[in-house]
Simulated assay, not measured.
Amino acid sequence: MNKDFWKILFTWLETASLEELHHKRNLVQQMLGQIHDRGLKSDIRRILRFMDEEILARAELSKLMSVA
Protein backbone atom coordinates (compact mmCIF):
# COMPACT_ATOMS: atom_id res chain seq x y z
CA MET A 1 0.00 0.00 0.00
CA ASN A 2 1.42 3.33 -1.03
CA LYS A 3 1.85 6.61 0.84
CA ASP A 4 -1.36 8.05 -0.56
CA PHE A 5 -3.36 5.14 0.84
CA TRP A 6 -1.94 5.68 4.33
CA LYS A 7 -2.56 9.45 4.13
CA ILE A 8 -6.18 8.83 3.15
CA LEU A 9 -6.57 6.23 5.90
CA PHE A 10 -5.23 8.58 8.60
CA THR A 11 -7.47 11.39 7.39
CA TRP A 12 -10.47 9.06 7.49
CA LEU A 13 -9.54 7.82 10.97
CA GLU A 14 -9.55 11.39 12.26
CA THR A 15 -12.89 12.30 10.69
CA ALA A 16 -14.98 9.11 10.83
CA SER A 17 -17.66 8.72 13.44
CA LEU A 18 -17.20 6.09 16.12
CA GLU A 19 -19.99 4.08 14.53
CA GLU A 20 -18.20 4.19 11.15
CA LEU A 21 -14.95 3.11 12.80
CA HIS A 22 -16.58 0.09 14.42
CA HIS A 23 -18.42 -0.87 11.23
CA LYS A 24 -15.35 -0.63 8.99
CA ARG A 25 -13.21 -2.39 11.59
CA ASN A 26 -15.58 -5.35 11.49
CA LEU A 27 -15.41 -5.41 7.69
CA VAL A 28 -11.62 -5.24 7.68
CA GLN A 29 -11.46 -8.01 10.30
CA GLN A 30 -13.60 -10.20 8.04
CA MET A 31 -11.30 -9.45 5.10
CA LEU A 32 -8.33 -10.62 7.12
CA GLY A 33 -9.75 -14.14 7.24
CA GLN A 34 -10.21 -14.21 3.47
CA ILE A 35 -6.74 -13.00 2.45
CA HIS A 36 -3.88 -15.43 1.91
CA ASP A 37 -1.11 -13.05 0.82
CA ARG A 38 1.27 -12.52 3.77
CA GLY A 39 2.15 -8.95 2.82
CA LEU A 40 -1.45 -7.91 2.45
CA LYS A 41 -2.36 -9.63 5.73
CA SER A 42 0.39 -7.63 7.42
CA ASP A 43 -1.01 -4.37 6.02
CA ILE A 44 -4.53 -5.32 7.11
CA ARG A 45 -3.33 -6.08 10.63
CA ARG A 46 -1.62 -2.67 10.69
CA ILE A 47 -4.87 -1.00 9.60
CA LEU A 48 -6.70 -2.83 12.39
CA ARG A 49 -4.12 -1.63 14.93
CA PHE A 50 -4.57 1.98 13.77
CA MET A 51 -8.35 1.61 14.01
CA ASP A 52 -8.05 0.14 17.51
CA GLU A 53 -5.74 2.97 18.57
CA GLU A 54 -8.23 5.57 17.32
CA ILE A 55 -11.17 3.88 19.05
CA LEU A 56 -9.17 3.64 22.29
CA ALA A 57 -8.01 7.26 22.07
CA ARG A 58 -11.59 8.43 21.63
CA ALA A 59 -12.74 6.34 24.58
CA GLU A 60 -10.01 7.81 26.77
CA LEU A 61 -10.83 11.34 25.62
CA SER A 62 -14.50 10.77 26.30
CA LYS A 63 -13.66 9.50 29.77
CA LEU A 64 -11.51 12.55 30.47
CA MET A 65 -14.22 14.90 29.22
CA SER A 66 -16.85 13.31 31.45
CA VAL A 67 -14.64 13.67 34.54
CA ALA A 68 -13.87 17.34 33.89
Rank of each mutant, 00 (worst) to 15 (best):
A16T: 10
L61V: 11
S62D: 14
N26F: 00
K63Y: 14
A16L: 09
H23L: 08
D4Q: 02
N26D: 03
E54Y: 08
M51H: 08
L9G: 00
S42F: 05
L13Y: 04
R46P: 01
L13D: 02
I44E: 06
H22C: 04
H36A: 06
A59P: 01
G33H: 09
W6S: 00
D4M: 02
S17F: 14
W6Y: 04
E20S: 10
H36D: 06
L61R: 14
L21C: 07
D43S: 14
K24Y: 15
L32G: 05
Q34N: 08
I44L: 12
M1G: 05
S62T: 13
I35R: 01
I47D: 01
M31F: 01
Q34E: 13
E60I: 15
R45G: 05
R46L: 11
L48C: 02
K24M: 11
M65D: 09
L9P: 01
K41A: 04
R46S: 09
L48F: 01
L56T: 15
H22K: 09
L64C: 14
A16V: 10
L40T: 02
E54Q: 13
F5L: 01
M31Q: 03
E19R: 12
L64K: 14
I35L: 01
K3V: 08
I55Q: 07
D4F: 00
E60D: 13
D37A: 13
H23Q: 09
S66G: 06
R25F: 08
M31W: 01
I44Q: 07
D52Q: 13
L27N: 08
L32R: 09
N2R: 02
E19Q: 13
A68E: 15
E60V: 15
S17E: 14
Q29F: 02
Q34T: 09
V67I: 13
D4P: 00
F50A: 11
D52G: 12
I47F: 04
L56E: 15
M31A: 03
L21Y: 06
E14K: 13
W12P: 01
L32Y: 07
F50T: 03
H36L: 05
F50H: 10
